[in-house]
């Protein structure tokens, strides 16, 4: 006779083991993610300062928005939500994210299409495009800062030689070009990642579809719009959301390439500045809480609208 109680026992044993296996990871993630996040949100409702971490008192929403009536009857609004520097940072972040992810997607898809074709030396080309990805962000920021140098930079030299520019421009220092400089470096560095994700998506499309289209004499552009793009779309959606989330929190590239430039200061940069450099710990906490909220809303919207299946379960 088959012993059912023993089988149940085994299943229960497995579940108990699973719990013990998961516990250390969950505790670790709680300590480094959930708890600090909750503390940040808490700090944003206090007047805590960097030098007096435990002396902060609850002040409600004052870091976000505060209405104060002067004795003369004039009403003054204060807080992050009416801070032009904050809104400038929000605008910079959004602008940077949308433009960089757009170009990275277009270029990434283009490179993926090239790499998906069979040609001699394909392995070498794939290795070459991995190099920008492998270089640390700080190093690429410094490399490009040197190349974009106004006097001795090679980019200005190239552009002057081929006649696009009359004389060199101060890419990173000038307020008009600082964002362009940041975008160039970010697109250069992150397009390979996008290309690899797109390539993985492309390689899952069965080749016979293309054969059939070729026999039917369908124009290659039509093949791209009607076959390739719809089929690669799920992979592309996931790649875009990953990149978008990464772009929204950008810090290091901007901190190093264009320090203190108003034209490129993003939400992460301005939050850290307030948190650490300006000793407005609570105010910076409020700003980073807002950034977190914006990203959370964005993710929910995206998953909801795009019906992205992030877990990869149930569609195998």
């Amino acid at each position: 006779m088959f012993d059912f109680s023993k089988e149940l026992d085994l299943e229960a044993q497995r579940r108990r083991a699973a719990f013990y296996f998961l516990a250390p990871m969950i505790i670790a993630l709680f300590c480094v993610a959930a708890w600090p996040l909750l503390r940040t949100i808490y700090f944003s409702f206090t007047d805590t300062s960097l030098t007096n971490l435990y002396g902060g008192e609850w002040i409600g929403f004052d870091n976000y928005l505060q209405r104060r009536e002067l004795s003369s009857g004039r009403v003054i609004w204060r807080g992050t939500l009416v801070d032009p520097a904050w809104w400038n940072a929000v605008w910079n972040t959004v602008r940077f994210s949308v433009i960089s992810v757009f170009f990275e997607t277009v270029f990434g898809l283009g490179i993926a299409l090239v790499l998906n074709a069979e040609f001699r030396g394909r392995g070498w080309v794939r290795a070459a495009i991995l190099i920008p990805w492998a270089i640390p962000t700080i190093v690429s920021a410094k490399m490009w800062a040197w190349m974009l140098n106004d006097q001795f930079g090679i980019i200005n030299d190239i552009l002057v030689r081929i006649g696009i520019l009359e004389r060199g421009i101060a890419w990173t220092a000038s307020i008009d070009t600082a964002m362009t400089a940041v975008l160039i470096v970010d697109i250069w560095k992150t397009t390979p990642f996008m290309a690899l994700l797109c390539l993985a998506g492309l390689q899952m499309i069965p080749r016979d579809i293309y054969e059939a289209a070729k026999i039917d004499g369908v124009h290659p552009l039509k093949v791209f719009w009607k076959i390739t793009l719809p089929l690669v779309r799920p992979a592309l959606m996931v790649a875009v959301i990953f990149r978008m989330l990464d772009a929204l929190r950008i810090f290091d590239l901007i901190y190093v390439l264009t320090p203190n430039s108003k034209a490129t200061k993003t939400m992460s940069v301005i939050s850290r500045e307030n948190l650490i450099d300006f000793d407005k710990f609570a105010y910076g906490s409020a700003q980073s809480t807002l950034l977190f909220a914006i990203i959370a809303i964005f993710v929910s919207l995206y998953i909801w609208l795009g019906k992205v299946n992030l877990s990869g379960e149930g569609n195998q």
């Binding site: 998961l22 969950i26 993630l29 300590c31 480094v32 993610a33 708890w35 600090p36 996040l37 909750l38 503390r39 940040t40 700090f43 971490l53 990953f242 989330l245 929204l248 929190r249 810090f251 939400m267 992460s268 939050s271 850290r272 948190l275 710990f281 910076g284 906490s285 980073s288 809480t289 950034l291 977190f292 990203i295 993710v299 992030l310 877990s311 379960e313």
Partner: peptide, 25 residues
């Protein structure tokens, strides 16, 4: 599934959001 999504969510975290709390910790 919920646990998996949460873990993925943590990796997407803006690091600045935990900076103040981590600093205290």
């Amino acid at each position: 599934s919920l646990l998996l999504i949460t873990i993925l969510g943590v990796s997407m975290f803006p690091q600045i959001a935990v900076l103040a709390g981590l600093f205290e910790l």
